[in-house]
């Protein structure tokens, strides 16, 4: 589903990604872990071209994202993204946040989009919050709405950029449980996270990144119980 080949990314003189290769199969959940500044978020943002790469190729479902001729807007409609800081549209109600993209981009009738949105709100456990503005929601609720907003476009892939990192601890669980449900439904997911428990339990594969390189990848059991790379060992010894 996602194919990343030899990508390099620099911000000015700072090289953040130093040749990354990996792939994600359909229905697979890949968790990317690693210390801050290791390039995990940048990698994720390169996949839907919020950042452009200096070299290398990225394919989603066979379409080359990094080809300048690709219609990136059409492609992004198939790639949902969830941000650390939610980035809900504060001037719209939760319902409007969710219906906005399908109505504008797919020309979906408003009533149909609202029906879908209400279904999605029920799915993320917020059926009674449809006419509420984001400012009236807690962090965990905002993030669940953000997930619903991304799902409204029926994406083939979901990218999660540290979705629980800015949440109060008691709200992390509700967001992770929505993500877990999504994984069980067979959504293809790439999750950049510091939630090792989630990575172990839900991830099919875990990638450990440090200093712009994939240091180690494997099944959760292999990475967490028997890490081979000394960097992985030292990182996990600090966080587990």
């Amino acid at each position: 589903m996602i194919e990343v080949k030899g990508i390099h990314k620099s911000f000015g003189r700072l090289e953040v990604l130093k040749g990354i290769d990996f792939h994600v199969s359909a229905r697979e959940v890949v968790c990317v872990i690693g210390p801050s500044g290791s390039g995990k978020s940048t990698l994720l943002r390169c996949i839907n071209q919020l950042e452009t790469v200096q070299s290398g190729h990225i394919f989603i479902d066979g379409v080359e994202v990094t080809d300048p001729k690709t219609d990136i807007n059409a492609l992004r409609q198939q790639v949902g993204m969830v941000f650390q800081l939610f980035n809900l549209f504060p001037h719209k109600t939760t319902l409007e946040n969710i219906t906005m993209a399908p109505v504008i981009l797919k020309g979906m009738p408003k009533a149909e989009a609202e029906e879908i949105a209400i279904g999605l709100l029920r799915k993320v456990g917020l059926p009674d919050k449809d006419h509420v503005y984001p400012a009236q929601l807690s962090g965990g609720q905002k993030q669940r709405v953000a997930i619903a907003r991304a799902l409204a476009m029926h994406p083939k892939v979901m990218l999660f950029d540290e979705p629980t990192s800015s949440l109060d601890p008691e709200m992390v669980g509700e967001v992770l449980s929505v993500m877990k449900d999504l994984a069980h439904e067979g959504m293809t997911m790439v999750v950049v996270t510091h939630e090792m428990g989630f990575a172990r339990e839900v991830g099919h594969r875990v990638i450990f990144m440090d200093e712009g390189i994939i240091m180690e990848e494997g099944t959760p059991a292999a990475i967490f119980d028997n890490p081979q790379n000394p960097r992985t060992q030292s990182f996990l010894s600090k966080v587990l």
Partner: peptide, 20 residues
Amino acid sequence: GQMEAARSLGMNGSQAMRYV
């Protein structure tokens, strides 16, 4: 982040400007 969220949903630059 507002622009990023709008673009990540698939809006082009002017749609993001106009609606978000």
